[in-house]
Write a protein that binds this DNA or RNA. Structure first.
Lengths: 151, 151
DNA sequence: ATTTATTGTTTGCAATTTACAATTTTTTGA
DNA sequence: TCAAAAAATTGTAAATTGCAAACAATAAAT
């Protein structure tokens, strides 16, 4: 059996390649991080700037500037949170949601192609395995949380 | 069942966090990409500059500069290939191999902790699943290969 | 044998990305 | 009330990136 880390290294590398393909939608150029930001804003409903930055493990200042770009591109909206006016709530514009959905569809298509090389049973097993893995990573103490506040 | 992409997105994000931790060994600061380069040089035995850059899906010029840094840090050695003197063969120095091994050990330790949250049977299943997934990604046509020569 | 094309690698350079420190604005709590 | 904390932004300087171009060595062509 191969070294466990190398399994992961190979997997994330290949998934990374897959991810890279997905960053040009209808002539609009999106960087990899930007696509992740769109994805994350969509996932966390009505998140603050802090929340998304934390969730992505990005430095808040870097994130702030990336968001500015996405706002300029009219893909993201920034609305002050009434209850606490320090907080900015992020959301996708119609255009942003469209782009995010387009990327999502494309990624799922790619993944479907990958899974087409295995049986239905194997596919179910793999997906359940990843689910389980994700749960265990979430439980894990030593890792898998961003550590930017650690200083 | 969750969207397939989100399973992958979550997994790679968490593994990415885990990876980030591993970049400071004995006071020596290694960036994430640099750790990947060390790993890849170790994996491919006696690779050329081109080969490693391709394997990592990195732009060759960016890669060239990163290698220069690693050479300066005395972690990587660059030796001209006798048969074809255009080619530079990369290898780890003793120090580089030590660092790479240290990172590898630490990563495996982290992963062991993650897997400690599941049964031995589950662990075997998950590892086999990842192995299978890697094989299918390798087979896949639409993705999972770097596409830098694509222009 | 000499020219021409190709391949592997490195630099010039300009744009982008990054993160630390400091700042602004608002809220909280002693 | 007022100092401390929290959320977000900006100044700045360093690091990273990738295209175009250059360079060196080999292969192919004439």
């Amino acid at each position: 059996m191969e070294n466990i880390r190398s399994l992961f290294q190979t997997m994330t590398k290949r998934f990374g390649f897959l991810n890279k393909n997905c960053c040009s939608v209808d002539g609009m150029e999106i960087s990899l991080v930007q696509s992740h930001i769109l994805y994350e804003i969509d996932r966390l409903k009505q998140p603050s700037v802090q929340q998304v930055a934390d969730s992505l493990g990005m430095d808040i200042t870097t994130f702030s500037r990336q968001v500015q770009k996405l706002v300029q591109m009219r893909l993201v909206r920034k609305t002050p949170y009434p209850e606490d006016r320090r907080i900015m709530i992020l959301s996708l514009t119609t255009e942003g949601a469209y782009i995010a959905a387009k990327i999502d569809a494309e990624m799922n298509e790619y993944l479907a192609e990958v899974f087409s090389h295995m049986s239905e049973f194997e596919k179910e097993t793999v997906l359940r395995s990843i689910q389980l893995l994700n749960d265990c990573m979430a439980k894990s103490s030593v890792c898998c949380k961003p550590m930017y506040g650690s200083k």
